[in-house]
């Protein structure tokens, strides 16, 4: 701070408190709604103070779910979401780090072409090519499987670029020394490059986990069997029924549970999250 201005300090805090309040309020209302007893939402306005039924609502959703909407119990959807996020994270990092290694540490025909093919994935979000991508996945017989849920989302230009940029900053002497000592490409990658990339991998994992968790359209298309529903897509089905049968207390319990894992990841790994976010976009 350059100089002391008490009035401006107060104003700063006021702005921030107001900002935080706006950001937190919808989640507060959702949480309060999720603690209400059944029947609260037949009439009147949403209450703003906690109700008595928090434990029952969450237990009911986790073990039974909303059977009227055809959605399975939440524990199953939470497990599916977790698997999906973890497989996408692991897959993206694994294939990106080896392709960045190939691009930086080898010279071979069609290297630039390969780089551009990877680059193209940036330009084709799933939303704009849904029908043909769906056709490919269905022709390969991958509907209703974890492979179908995750494999098409695993290619990643951003991760490849990040690792490429990072490898370019590693001093050449390191590799020369390794070669003098007789290390081949696999050994160099495993014993030197991989340990050096640890922080980058961790930061990227946080971002990719969130990316995998919040996927919506893709699971909606490839899963028709409720055993493969993820929680983020399942919520839509529940909410669609909430207007006819006012079971908002149950829907909001599901909403809170669907938000919690990735939000906790952001809060507890904030340093890695910020690093991952800021660096993948540069």
């Amino acid at each position: 701070m350059v100089e002391n201005r008490p009035f401006l300090n107060v104003l700063t805090h006021l702005v921030l408190i107001l900002g935080v309040a706006v950001v937190v309020f919808p989640v507060y209302v959702a949480f309060i709604a999720s603690t209400q007893a059944p029947g609260t939402f037949f009439r009147g306005v949403t209450p703003l103070l906690p109700g008595p039924a928090m434990v029952e609502n969450y237990a009911h959703m986790l073990t039974e779910g909303m059977s009227t909407s055809g959605a399975p119990p939440l524990w199953l959807m939470l497990i599916n979401s977790t698997w999906m996020a973890i497989i996408i994270t692991g897959g993206k990092i694994a294939i990106s780090i080896i392709s960045a290694y190939a691009i930086v540490y080898f010279k071979f025909p069609f290297r630039t072409l390969a780089f551009w093919i990877i680059f193209v994935t940036l330009m084709l979000p799933v939303e704009v090519r849904i029908i043909p991508t769906f056709a490919v996945v269905s022709n390969l017989g991958l509907l209703n499987s974890y492979v179908g849920l995750t494999l098409p989302l695993i290619a990643s230009a951003t991760a490849t670029f990040l690792f490429r940029q990072f490898f370019l900053t590693i001093p050449d002497e390191l590799m020369e020394a390794a070669r003098v000592d007789g290390a081949g490409p696999i050994k160099f990658f495993k014993d030197i490059l991989l340990p050096l990339s640890r922080t980058n991998i961790a930061a990227l994992s946080v971002i990719m986990f969130i990316y995998g968790w919040v996927q919506y359209l893709w699971p909606l298309l490839v899963t028709t069997d409720s055993r493969y529903y993820t929680i983020v897509m399942g919520i839509k089905r529940m909410a669609a029924y909430a207007d006819q049968q006012p079971q908002w207390h149950l829907v909001m319990a599901a909403v809170i549970l669907a938000m919690l894992p990735p939000v906790l990841v952001v809060i507890f790994m904030q340093r890695l999250f910020v690093k991952g976010l800021v660096e993948t976009e540069k």
């Binding site: 969130i210 968790w213 919040v214 983020v232 909403v255 669907a258 939000v263 990841v265």
Partner: peptide, 8 residues
């Protein structure tokens, strides 16, 4: 809120 899914 970055970690909240758009649909949520």
């Amino acid at each position: 809120p970055y970690a909240v899914a758009p649909v949520v």
